[in-house]
């Protein structure tokens, strides 16, 4: 790791001030993406602004028909939250299957969303549930927020403060885990809210998380695993690497989508 100066503000506002003042500064959340990257010298910020003491970025609240999760809330806290478990059980399930228990004790929703790793789990939930990413400057829909591989709409000095999830009537998540890293080779999140159905796919797309309109249309006729029988995702635009080629991943999308619907309808 290259040297840096370390700062620990106690509020998001203080963090934003520090971020603006220090040239080449980076935010530190759980550190479970940033620190490994710095250890390999793939990132070398001159200053780290640690959000760990910003109490205003933590916690889970139910606001009307939404679950609002502070950016510094850990994966373990989301997984164990009675509010999340009762409002959107699939979201608690997703958080409880990120990495391993130790990763879940440190990694945060804000860090995961900001990083937009193409194999990360949360982006699928945000896109399928129609979540809103709230920053210190504005509010963005998930569609507008995730812009490509490791790319988001976040601007210089912008801090995610919370993510707001509308409560779906039915939701499910299924992921085929990379057996070594536990990241998603393919993860599919399905959600039904009123008559709107969304199917979001992570781990597979060359451009990161995406929606699968054909599956959404098929599920609109009837929200059941059977509705997806015979439906295949094309291998075009799908990632191939040493873990799985594009054909295999494309096949997994269909399999995971069915499992996710089964979970959402209590048939898993």
């Amino acid at each position: 790791m290259y040297a840096f100066t370390y700062h620990k503000p106690t509020s998001a506002r203080q963090a934003a001030t520090l971020l603006a003042k220090k040239e080449d500064a980076k935010l530190l959340a759980g550190g479970h993406t940033l620190l490994p990257t710095m250890k390999q010298r793939l990132a070398s910020p001159s200053a780290l602004v640690d959000l760990g003491a910003c109490a205003d970025l933590k916690g889970i609240t139910v606001k009307g028909r939404n679950i609002v999760i502070g950016a510094m809330t850990t994966h373990a806290e989301v997984a164990d939250s009675p509010e999340v478990q009762s409002a959107i059980p699939a979201l608690a399930y997703l958080a409880g299957h990120i990495g391993d228990p130790h990763v879940r004790h440190r990694g945060t929703i804000g860090g995961s969303v900001a990083n937009n790793d193409p194999a990360a789990d949360y982006p699928a939930a945000l896109l399928a549930l129609g979540a809103t990413v709230v920053t210190n400057k504005r509010k963005l829909t998930a569609e507008d927020f995730f812009t490509g591989l490791y790319e988001t709409a976040l601007e210089e000095g912008e801090i995610i403060t919370k993510v707001s999830f509308p409560i779906a009537s039915k939701a499910g998540y299924a992921k085929f885990r990379n057996p070594a890293s536990r990241y998603a080779m393919v993860g599919v999140f399905v959600a039904k809210r009123g008559s709107e159905i969304r199917v979001a796919v992570t781990g597979a797309g060359e451009g990161g998380v995406f929606r699968w309109p054909e599956a959404e249309a098929a599920l609109k006729a009837r929200f059941a695993p059977k509705s997806l029988d015979g439906l295949k995702h094309t291998a075009k635009g799908i990632n191939g690497d040493i873990h799985a080629d594009a054909e295999y991943r494309a096949h997994l999308i269909g399999v995971m989508a069915k499992q996710a619907v089964a979970q959402a309808t209590g048939k898993a």
């Binding site: 370390y6 620990k8 530190l28 550190g31 479970h32 620190l35 490994p36 250890k39 390999q40 780290l48 640690d50 760990g52 373990a76 391993d100 228990p101 130790h102 990763v103 004790h105 440190r106 070594a180 890293s181």
Partner: peptide, 29 residues
């Protein structure tokens, strides 16, 4: 390891298991 994956470095931080190779000392003051 150098990739935060092996868990040989696990300690309890305020009662919870964490990977001490992926945690800054200054952050746990």
């Amino acid at each position: 390891c150098d990739t935060s994956q092996c868990g040989a470095c696990v300690v309890h931080l305020d009662g919870k298991a964490v990977k001490s190779c992926t945690t800054l000392a200054v952050a746990v003051d």
